[in-house]
């Protein structure tokens, strides 16, 4: 393997890792803070992809500039995912906080329902979304052409990583989230309404996943099962990184993305998927709480 192939596969791995990160970070925080294992999280990713595509194509007649349309599509996708997320927490999750098993069943069922809804609205077959003009090019990277769109995904992922890190470390809300992941009861006894923070975190997590879906749409295509597929990788990431750990989900996403890319290249995509699960098994055997496992050790 030459150096340029190595760099190229590395960049591909990073691209994939960033998509995983956008789903996994919310999944992990929601579990850490609320003890909700959200099996509908991939659905938000799917909703983001579909809404972004529908917005991008639907506004083609009104807005001739594809870059602007793409920006609007990203925002629309993230907002749609956040909106459905907020409704989900408020209407379906909140009544079940005292019955966690029912919550798992509820989110699992919701994932299938949302997949069917999408099929009814947009059809069961896949769609493809064009890339905006300025991101359709290839850029020269160490003498080899590399699609600009992938670099965009990497940049977007890094930007979100930075913004959320600053939010978690520097803001009062972030402080409450970090404290709540460790001991939600104590946070309440300080006079803080944890439930309101739950809704906020669930909404933000859903919006991040939807943003990931919107960004992935022109890159991997749009199909109803996209959510379930990416969710599986996201769960692997969350387990490896440590349930409830934001930093852990960031590191594990990149790790899993790179493992995927190298295995894809050397072996086959099917084997690659298996290798990820193998990595998870090794981490669970050596460090069951995950690389950055939260102290309370989320039950999985």
């Amino acid at each position: 393997m030459t150096l340029e192939t190595l760099v190229n596969i590395g960049l591909q791995g990073l691209t994939m890792g960033m998509l995983f990160f956008l789903i996994a970070s919310g999944l992990s925080l929601i579990f850490g803070l609320m003890d909700v294992l959200n099996f509908a999280h991939g659905s938000f990713f799917m909703i983001g992809a579909y809404v972004a595509w529908a917005t991008f194509d639907g506004t083609a007649a009104i807005i001739p500039f594809s870059d602007l349309r793409f920006a609007i599509a990203l925002v629309a996708g993230a907002l749609a995912g956040g909106g459905v997320g907020a409704l989900t927490e408020w209407g379906l999750i909140r009544p079940l906080y005292k019955r966690p098993i029912f919550q798992i069943l509820m989110t699992l069922g919701l994932a299938y329902v949302l997949t069917e809804v999408v099929k009814v609205v947009w059809g069961a077959s896949g769609h493809s979304m064009a890339r905006p003009e300025s991101l359709s090019r290839a850029v020269d990277f160490l003498g080899r052409p590399f699609p600009a769109y992938r670099l965009f995904i990497i940049a977007l992922g890094l930007a979100i990583l930075l913004v959320v890190s600053v939010l978690l470390q520097r803001s009062r809300l972030g402080m409450i989230i970090r404290a709540g992941v460790e001991n939600g009861e104590m946070v309440q006894t300080l006079g803080i309404n944890v439930r309101r923070v739950f809704t906020l975190v669930f909404t933000l997590g859903a919006a991040l996943a939807a943003l990931g879906g919107a960004a992935a749409a022109p890159f991997v295509g749009i199909y109803p099962e996209i959510g379930l597929e990416y969710q599986l990788s996201a769960f692997v990431v969350v387990v490896i990184g440590g349930m409830g750990s934001f930093a852990g989900s960031a590191v594990a996403s990149i790790l899993v993305g790179l493992a995927r890319a190298f295995a894809d290249y050397q072996l086959s995509p099917l084997v690659a998927q298996a290798i990820i699960v193998a990595v998870m098994a090794v981490v669970l055997l050596l460090k069951p709480e995950g690389i950055f496992g939260a102290k309370k050790g989320g039950g999985l």
Partner: peptide, 24 residues
């Protein structure tokens, strides 16, 4: 009343396990 409302009225709690946030 929910716990956070009780606390807001002016009641502080020092639990047996101290409830310190170890990561903060």
């Amino acid at each position: 009343l929910p716990t956070y409302s009780v606390a807001q009225l002016g009641i502080g709690y020092v639990p047996e396990d101290r409830g310190i946030f170890t990561d903060l």
